[in-house]
Simulated assay, not measured.
Amino acid sequence: MSRRVPLTGGEKESLHASLDRHRDAVLWKVDGLDEEQARRPMTPSGTSLLGLVKHLAAVEYGWFCQTFGREAEPLWFAPEEDMEIRPEESTEQIVAFYRRARAAADRAINALDLETTGTSWAGETVSMRWVLIHMIEDTARHAGHMDILRELIDGAVGDHRPA
């Protein structure tokens, strides 16, 4: 069953739950696929399910950790290569990278108030509230892309694993 945003929850709890719903959808969209299916380019620009997972991991580290001066693992790729899957990168490796980024982001979310500010890589001052909203938007957008790609690969549909 898919997570739900609490119907009467506080702001931070509700924002975090909303982000988690979309994060869970991202993970299930690559679940059960073989290496070829997960990395298969599905658009003329080369978008693949695994590339989207890699991108989302990188931006979780960037927005939640680097913006707020929190620890982030070093990336082994250039920022502009975050949607490219190299031959030596496996689904298992990229999914584990996403899980670690999510855990690091959750530590930042749990430790900081919504009003806490940090500095983005563009030099802008942003609040944790703004970052949560931005990441809900970004993750939901890419989870929607992943809905379409997964359906094209094997017909699986929906925003959560079937019961």
Results as ranks from 00 to 15, higher is better:
Ala163Leu: 12
Arg39Asp: 02
His145Ile: 10
Glu60Gln: 14
Met42His: 00
Gly158Gln: 07
Gly123Arg: 01
Asp34Glu: 03
Arg39Leu: 03
Val131Trp: 10
Pro44Leu: 03
Met128Asp: 01
Met1Asn: 10
Pro6Gln: 10
Glu11Pro: 05
Ala58Asn: 14
Asp113Trp: 06
Lys12Ile: 09
Pro79Glu: 08
Leu15Phe: 06
Ser2Ala: 10
Gly9Thr: 03
Glu92Arg: 12
Arg3Trp: 08
Leu56Trp: 00
Asp82Pro: 03
Trp130Thr: 11
Gln66Asp: 14
His134Phe: 14
Ala72Lys: 04
Glu81Pro: 02
Val157Leu: 12
Leu15His: 05
Ile136Cys: 11
Ala105Leu: 04
Pro44Asn: 02
Met146Ile: 14
Pro41Asp: 05
Thr43Met: 03
Pro74Leu: 02
Leu52Val: 12
Leu15Ser: 07
Gly46Pro: 09
Gly9Val: 05
Ser14Gln: 08
Lys12Ala: 12
Gly155Val: 09
Arg39Gly: 11
Ala78Pro: 00
His55Leu: 12
Ile136Asp: 05
Thr119Val: 15
Gly62Cys: 14
Gly46Arg: 13
Glu88Arg: 11
Arg141Asn: 15
Arg129Met: 06
Pro87Ala: 13
Glu124Thr: 02
Met83Gln: 15
Met146Pro: 06
Trp63Ala: 06
Trp121Tyr: 13
Pro41Met: 00
Met83Ala: 13
Pro79Arg: 04
Gly123Tyr: 00
Glu60Trp: 10
Val95Ser: 02
Arg129Ser: 02
Arg161Cys: 04
Gly9Cys: 07
Ala156Trp: 06
Phe97Tyr: 15
Phe97Ile: 02
Glu35Ala: 12
Leu49Lys: 05
Glu80Gln: 11
Ile148Pro: 01
Glu92Cys: 01
Leu112Phe: 09
Ala25Arg: 11
His16Phe: 10
Asp24His: 07
Glu89Gln: 15
Ala72Ile: 04
Glu151Asn: 06
Ala78Ser: 08
Val5Thr: 15
Asp113Pro: 00
Thr67Val: 11
Arg129Gly: 05
Ala143Gly: 09
Val126His: 04
Asn110Glu: 14
Gly144Ile: 07
Leu132Phe: 04
Lys12Val: 10
Ala156Cys: 05
Glu89Arg: 02
Ile136Gly: 07
Gly32Trp: 04
Ala25His: 11
Arg23Lys: 09
Trp63Arg: 11
Gly32Asn: 05
Gln66Cys: 02
Asp31Cys: 09
Met83Leu: 08
Glu71Lys: 06
Gly32Ser: 04
Arg70Cys: 09
Val5Phe: 10
Tyr61Pro: 01
